[in-house]
Design a protein around this nucleic acid. Structure first.
Lengths: 172, 172
DNA sequence: CAATATTTTTATCTACAATAACAGTTATGT
DNA sequence: ACATAACTGTTATTGTAGATAAAAATATTG
């Protein structure tokens, strides 16, 4: 056994100055590596869209209402795993910036139909190029077939506990 | 072209009541799928350790100082990609619960050497079983060779912009 | 000694998630 | 018709994470 592990001793501590500190097997945990990868990818994404001041959550909302104009708030937030209560301020900001708007619905005065504005649609055009470059950068890292194999594996994990209809997690 | 896309019309909206709302290609984005997978895995992890009231960040700190007792705060936080400043309250909580402790260092009165308490070491024993079950659950999802292939792909992504020595991102 | 580093701490700030409670509206059942 | 329930969006509040700025104490270096 090691002779000296009292506080302040050198063993196991001082000799690791090079930054090569053991993670104690943490990097064998899927969750840990997954988180580090997700942070790195998001950071690259945020950087790619920084000049437009659009962040991931905003981009996801714009993408969905561009693909399907006229959806209700509850439909969009549910599709994205966001709670409708948190969706409100998120969409408020998009509306404030003139990128999207709420429109009344004929038959149902409770709900709003969501649309991109022309400004929002024009912005999405520009975002597409930046996002494509971002995805290409990732593909370069992943190598041949990397994307397909990664997507398959991630999607298996994505529905574990799963979100409920309102973007919350486990409902016991 | 579709005849009717005015606000409140039925096309593209009402007929999607079954929940099958298009994400507009969002699920072809690595970052989006990565985030959903990470949330699901973390949720499973949190559930696995709920009875011990230990969350991922806490577990990661306990794991590192168990593997290498006597590290300084700055070493642990740097290894985990946490900023020193955020590490303080994180460790405060572990110390408050009697799971870990700060010990003075002989030569340097600025820094602390971090250790598990006996309580903390005993807890880690119990956590190990729960974490192992969690990882096994993930392996079941991932199938044969899934873990290895996923880890390889994720690690390629994990050092994109990369964290700097202090757990911050991009350093312009 | 003076100037500069390092290490930890405190205090804010933002983004994002979760919960509870509410108002207005619509749907249902009697 | 009416009471009741369910749905939709909103507000307010809380908690968690991450980032930044600045301080205080100590160490190192010229």
């Amino acid at each position: 056994m090691p002779p000296n592990v009292s506080p302040g001793s050198k063993d196991e501590v001082e000799r690791r100055k090079g930054g090569e500190i053991s993670l104690g097997g943490l990097d064998d945990h899927i969750g840990y590596v997954l988180r580090r990868a997700q942070l790195a990818v998001f950071q690259d994404f945020i950087g790619s869209l920084a000049e437009f001041d659009i962040r991931p959550a905003q981009y996801s909302v714009l993408t969905v209402i561009e693909a399907t104009p006229g959806l209700k708030q509850s439909q969009v937030s549910s599709a994205l795993g966001i709670q409708r209560t948190n969706f409100v301020t998120l969409f408020d900001e998009l509306e404030r910036r003139g990128l999207a708007r709420r429109m009344p619905v004929d038959n149902d005065r409770r709900s709003y139909a969501l649309y991109l504005t022309e400004t929002g649609a024009a912005l999405m055009e520009k975002l597409r190029a930046a996002v494509h470059a971002h995805e290409a950068r990732l593909d370069e890292r992943l190598g041949r077939d990397g994307r397909g194999r990664l997507m398959d594996l991630l999607k298996r994990l994505a529905d574990l506990g799963g979100l409920d209809g309102e973007g919350r997690f486990g409902t016991p």
